[in-house]
């Protein structure tokens, strides 16, 4: 049982605040993905959990034990580093056995675990090689095997696939998901790749400028962004935003339409819709098509509405050309609203 609980953790580097009071609980056996743009503090948070960085404030608990003053070796964690950190002077076998030998396990147990893990990760034929004789993908596998062989309570991974080429990444992603689910280990996985996050996560924690803005299931994060940033960061292409003016109690005027919305005291809020949640209809937002990009399954069109970028994903059977005038109607149940000041969802 290893639940991770991060309580009011902050981290300052000199005057710079990398993390502002982060609270996050990760359930036992959960696969949590920390998702955010580069520089938002994902690695810092992960390293604080690992014990490679000390928090400026706050507490870290793993499996009911407060660990923030313990060195990494006493936390029951294993980590997979972005650059793999496979020891170059040891064979693959000795790399995987390294942590087991530190635990002083008997030789036959070490051997059994190394071979079983190697088989699981499909590197049993590489055991005698050195890291210099491996490809990037193989090194990645060794790093994962080395962590898994420890049978840790918690596995921490920092962008483990980011140095692989696209095809290999796809393959490793699926494999990792299977292996980690089978191992029933609590996993914290850092990535800036939203597709990776969506495909792997039980729950995604979206980070922005040192804060967690939303922690929820992939579908929830996609459908109901808790903040404007989440909508603008997740989704390819991301959400469209248009300012809305008050037009009565719970009524808002958006680019010529009048829609039902939240009962807010403000006179201006923001209307948001995902590009795939609009359809060509007689009533709606009038646009002039600026760019047409046929993508096979769909056609992506780009235009602007009152000076704001507006994209729509239409069925590829629709024939549109640059310069065409269309009316796009948002699906009513997919409309979201945001407070322009707090950026929170309304």
């Amino acid at each position: 049982m290893a639940e991770i609980s991060i309580r009011k953790v902050a981290k300052h580097f000199g005057n710079f605040t990398a993390l502002h009071s982060v609270d996050l609980t990760i359930a036992d056996q959960e696969f949590l993905v920390l998702l955010g743009a580069s520089g938002c503090g994902k690695t810092t948070l992960l390293r604080i959990v690992a014990g490679l960085e000390t928090p400026s404030q706050g507490e870290v608990w793993i499996g009911g034990r407060r660990v923030d003053h313990l060195p990494p070796r006493d936390r029951g964690i294993a980590m997979v580093f972005q650059n793999y950190a496979v020891f170059p002077h040891l064979t693959v076998y000795e790399n995987i056995a390294f942590g087991l030998r530190m635990k002083k396990l008997p030789q036959d147990e070490v051997d059994r675990r190394v071979r079983r893990t190697a088989e699981l990760i499909h590197i049993e034929q590489l055991l005698k090689r050195y890291s210099g004789q491996l490809s990037g993908g193989q090194r990645q596998r060794v790093a994962v095997a080395r962590a898994l062989a420890m049978q840790p309570d918690v596995i921490l991974m920092d962008e483990p696939l980011s140095n692989l080429d696209a095809l290999l990444r796809l393959e490793m992603r699926a494999e990792l998901k299977g292996v980690l689910a089978a191992s029933k280990t609590t996993t914290v996985y850092v990535t800036h790749d939203q597709v990776e996050a969506m495909s792997l996560a039980d729950r995604i924690a979206v980070m922005h400028q040192g804060r967690i803005v939303q922690a929820a299931s992939p579908v929830e994060v996609y459908r109901n962004p808790a903040a404007r940033f989440v909508g603008s960061f997740i989704g390819n292409p991301p959400m469209n935003f248009i300012p809305a003016k008050k037009a009565g109690d719970g009524r808002w005027s958006v680019a010529g339409m009048t829609l039902d919305g939240p009962r807010a005291s403000r006179s201006e809020i923001e209307f948001a819709i995902r590009p795939e949640d609009v359809e060509v209809a007689p009533d709606g937002v009038p646009i002039t098509v600026r760019v047409v990009e046929p993508l096979g399954a769909h056609t992506l069109i780009t235009s602007d509405v009152e000076g704001h970028l507006f994209r729509a994903v239409l069925d590829s059977t629709t024939t549109v050309r640059t310069g065409d005038r269309l009316t796009l109607a948002p699906k009513p149940d997919r409309i979201r609203w945001f407070d322009p000041d707090t950026t929170a969802a309304l």
Partner: peptide
């Protein structure tokens, strides 16, 4: 750091 996380 990897060695530290592996028990060193």
């Amino acid at each position: 750091e990897a060695a530290w996380t592996l028990g060193c």
